[in-house]
Structures are given as C-alpha cells and as structure tokens.
Amino acid sequence: MTGTVAAIGAGLAVLGAGLGIGRIGGSAMDAIARQPEASGKIQTAMIIAAALIEGVALFGVVVGFLGL
C-alpha cells in the first residue's frame, strides 16, 4: 500500500518537474531563436536550470524510495 502511494507521489513529482523542464526548454528555444549567437551560453544555463529542477523532482523520487 505504502509502495503504491509512494509511486503516485513520485509520479506527481515527476509531473511537476516535467512541466518545469518543459518550460525551461521552451524558453531556451525562444531565446536561441532570438539570439542564435548566444546559443552556447543559453544551452549551458538551460542545462543547469534543468538539473536543479530535476534535483527537486528527485527529492520526490527519494521519498518514493522511503516507501519501498
């Protein structure tokens, strides 16, 4: 039972992270389209921001592990 609830929780966390990373990716695309010459810097910043959000999502996954 706890495992199932944890799985749902992890799923929700991933949902939020997916939205967040999606927004970052979209904004980065916009930014690159507007300023193709700055694409290197934008990509780096995008990856860092995505990794930070992913970190938060993984907190959720870790809580999911707690239930295992």
């Binding site: 990794a51 992913e54 970190g55 993984l58 907190f59 996954v61 870790v62």
Partner: peptide, 13 residues
Amino acid sequence: FALMIRLFANITA
C-alpha cells in the same frame, strides 16, 4: 543536503 540527494538520486534513478 540537496547536493547529496541530487547526485545520489540521479545516478540511482
């Protein structure tokens, strides 16, 4: 703490 969890969770996941 976030550093610890990030690395652990990323690699384990």
